[in-house]
Design a protein around this nucleic acid. Structure first.
Length: 428
RNA sequence: GGAGGGAUGGCAGAGCGGCCGAAUGCGAAGCUCUUGAAAAGCUUUGGGAUGCAAGUCCCCGUGGGUUCAAAUCCCACUCCCUCCGCCA
């Protein structure tokens, strides 16, 4: 949620910045008008309430002085004032809920230096590491689902039997590979991030206030008999932990990581680009989250990008850093860098981490604040990114490790974690 | 799942339906005193809305209700504690 003060104080500038994200200025104007109306109505309600309170207070003192008749008169007057007050309150409530409806549809403001653009075609590749096209020429590369089925570490048919499309059964050496990846990622970050094992189901309030559930979002799975939701990412649980809290400035930055299962409905997403482990309803991920002071958030963002890239470095996977253009930014982000791993089997760059700077957008909604040394309260800035998203990294490791003899050699860094160095050579 | 008890300011803990945004204690900050410190004394010490400001309004777990007036009464919900049941 953006600060509604921005709408009143700098309507033009705010509308302009939101327009870079593709927001219709008319919507911004609507929000501004409602915010203004609310401001006036608040004043009216407060004045009406004051009148009523004054008469009420007089009734109190009249009663104490046993001036029953006058008290009775005042009571009639207060009742009238009360009735009028209620009308105004109802009006204000209507305005406030209309305002909230509109403001909730406004995304976070993009950072000023985010490149202009309307779609992913306008995203900018900032850097590419370890990618040598020559390496992929003149050799047969297979998609991970073919390798996986052949080596019996991936079973799409049984996954479909159990749960339907876009679910996976990973087994044997494949399961060890997955487990090893997550262990490795957690180990890499354990000095800088506090490891958390949170609940995987959260209240409606938590998922709503982290911005992952709006009326327009059908991404999350909901439990039928309880007011609970399966988390679509560990970020929901990690961010939710501090909802409504006031942190000490000395406690910032907070850096958390969590290995969780993530569930996403991905409504209507089935298709050719979802084969194998490219996109799943359920997957495993190590998530990194930071809360920090506003003045530190750009630096924390840069280091978060570096942190997210470290597993890819260690695994020796070619990857690139893509900065999302204004129009492709996610709803709550002001800046996003995607990390994409090259997948030789499908000849595509697959997003394996999306590092977002969400500034105060979530913390305003979730009321996560901190007290500065001087005593002033301020909203924390929040950042998040995948520390390692297993399915796609799993896929990249399998595809890159493919040997001419059909076996898969694991990256050296992973061997201690997976407990094996090769899949399919002799034993699966 | 069943039976009870509870939820108030950073913490502890009072609070006859009106004079309670809230006693008191602790903690914290400032000042006085002091060479310095301790002790002592004085002062300050929640959040939000609105306003240039003075001020006004709202918030005592959450949401409703009763009333001229609710921290105080009623209802629902949530969470915490104790006991019983069940259970990895």
């Amino acid at each position: 949620m953006i600060d509604t003060k921005l709408l009143l104080d700098d309507f033009e500038g705010t509308a302009r910045r939101l327009a870079r994200k593709g927001v219709d200025p008319e919507l911004v104007r609507q929000a501004r008008d409602l915010a203004e109306a609310r401001r006036h109505q608040v004043q009216g309600v407060d004045a009406a309430r004051r009148e009523r309170n004054e008469v009420s207070a007089r009734i109190g003192s009249l009663m104490r002085e046993k001036r029953a008749e006058e008290a009775e008169q005042a009571r009639t007057q207060a009742a009238e004032l009360g009735a009028r007050l209620e009308e105004r309150e109802a009006e204000l409530r209507a305005t406030e809920s209309a305002l909230e409806d509109v403001v909730m549809r406004l995304p976070n403001l993009p950072a000023d230096d985010v490149p202009d653009g309307v779609s992913d075609a306008d995203n900018v590749v900032r850097a590419t590491f370890g990618y040598d096209p020559a390496r992929y020429a003149g050799r047969d590369w297979q998609p991970h689902w073919e390798i996986g089925e052949r080596l019996d570490i991936l079973d799409a048919a049984r996954a479909a039997k159990l749960s339907g499309a876009m679910f996976a059964v990973v087994q044997g050496a494949g399961a060890r590979l997955l487990r090893g990846l997550t262990s490795m990622a957690l180990d890499i970050h354990r000095d800088a991030y506090l490891e958390v094992i949170p609940p995987h189901v959260v209240r409606t309030e938590v998922i709503t206030r982290t911005g992952h559930l709006t009326k327009f979002d059908t991404q999350a799975y909901r439990l039928r008999d309880d007011e609970l939701w399966l988390i679509p990412t560990g970020e929901v649980a990690l961010m939710g932990m501090h909802q409504g809290e006031i942190l000490a400035e000395a406690d910032l930055p907070r850096r958390y990581m969590a290995y969780t299962v993530c569930w996403r409905r991905e409504a209507g997403a089935a298709g050719k680009e979802t084969r194998g482990l490219q996109r799943l309803h359920e997957f495993h991920k190590v998530e990194l989250v930071k809360l920090c002071r506003p003045e530190d958030s750009e630096a924390e963002f840069q280091s978060l990008v570096a942190d997210a890239a470290r597993p890819l470095e260690l695994l020796g996977l070619p990857y690139r850093i893509v900065e999302l253009c204004s129009g492709d930014l996610t709803f709550s982000a002001s800046r996003v860098y995607d990390l994409e791993v090259y997948s030789p089997g499908v000849d595509r760059w697959l997003e394996v981490s999306s590092v977002s700077l969400v500034t105060d957008f979530q913390s305003r909604r979730g009321q996560i604040r901190f007290r500065r040394e001087g005593g002033a309260l301020d909203y924390v800035h929040a950042l998040n990114g995948s520390g390692l998203a297993t399915p796609r990294v799993w896929a990249a490791v399998v595809e890159h490790g493919l040997q001419p003899d059909g076996s898969v050699v694991l990256p050296e860094a992973l061997v201690p974690y997976a407990g094996i160095s090769t899949i399919g050579a002799g034993r699966a």
